[in-house]
Design a protein around this nucleic acid. Sequence first.
DNA 1: GGCAAAAAAGTTTAATCAATGTCTTTTATG
DNA 2: CATAAAAGACATTGATTAAACTTTTTTGCC
Lengths: 144, 144
Amino acid sequence: MEISALLEQAKNVCQQRGVRFTPVREQVFLLLAKHSNAVGAYDLLSELQTIDPAAKPATIYRALDFLGQQGFVHKIESINAFVMCHHFSDCSHPVQLLICDQCGHVEEIQSQNLDLAIRSMADASGFNISHQIVEAHGKCQRCP
Amino acid sequence: MEISALLEQAKNVCQQRGVRFTPVREQVFLLLAKHSNAVGAYDLLSELQTIDPAAKPATIYRALDFLGQQGFVHKIESINAFVMCHHFSDCSHPVQLLICDQCGHVEEIQSQNLDLAIRSMADASGFNISHQIVEAHGKCQRCP
DNA sequence: GGCAAAAAAGTTTAATCAATGTCTTTTATG
DNA sequence: CATAAAAGACATTGATTAAACTTTTTTGCC
């Protein structure tokens, strides 16, 4: 399965970085991996509560925080939701998302050009980018 | 002053479009215009309440909704805040923002290239963009 | 012009969704 | 075993929307 491969990969990355992939973090990771679409923190929370009824918002947010820092998941700012990243091996890439407003599908694209275009625009204003958010909303090819 | 010019312009635009620039909307517009930085809805609310103590969250959100629809203000998704747009005469341009995390200054840039780069990336995936969000965080040229 | 009907805007109250703070307890690791 | 990181518990703040109702504005018609 692809999920278990992803999980292995994540575990390896954590090992290498000397950070802890704890049970809570793993559970949240798996929950996210099961969704092909983006998921809200509170949806995730209620799913987590079926496993661990004591889970609270902070539980989820802490786990998401960690997973985000490691680059395993991305937060979608425009809809307050989270998606699994499938290319976290190549570290700290710029994140560019296509979000279908009809079916909810999220596609992550990787355009060096786009990244460069943004950086050059910023340079022109003497601005130094540390983090960028690119989210396009619309209709994916599968939706009518 | 620049603010009153902006106000006039907004009034004209509304007149042309046959939509109503009511007192509440004008007040919120002016509050936003006074800020050079982005402002949160609740900050705006408490400012509005000094004029109109009866104002509630819905008051602000409805006004912001309207101002957003007309293109007078932009919402910054990554920080849940709002900024005045100074080029609302040329209608419905793509919004690209540089947000300084140190001083809070927000600069709106206008790059046709960037817009095209995003669109062509989307096209490649058969994706049809209706709305795009581009927000870069970092350090502006004035900050050390 | 004056007025009824319809449309738009605003008010109120409440609920929901999203995120963080603080303090205590547990757990891993040197 | 000491220490630091993580998780738990509890509470609160912040952000946004919903639903029901009232007021204001517009507009066509007498």
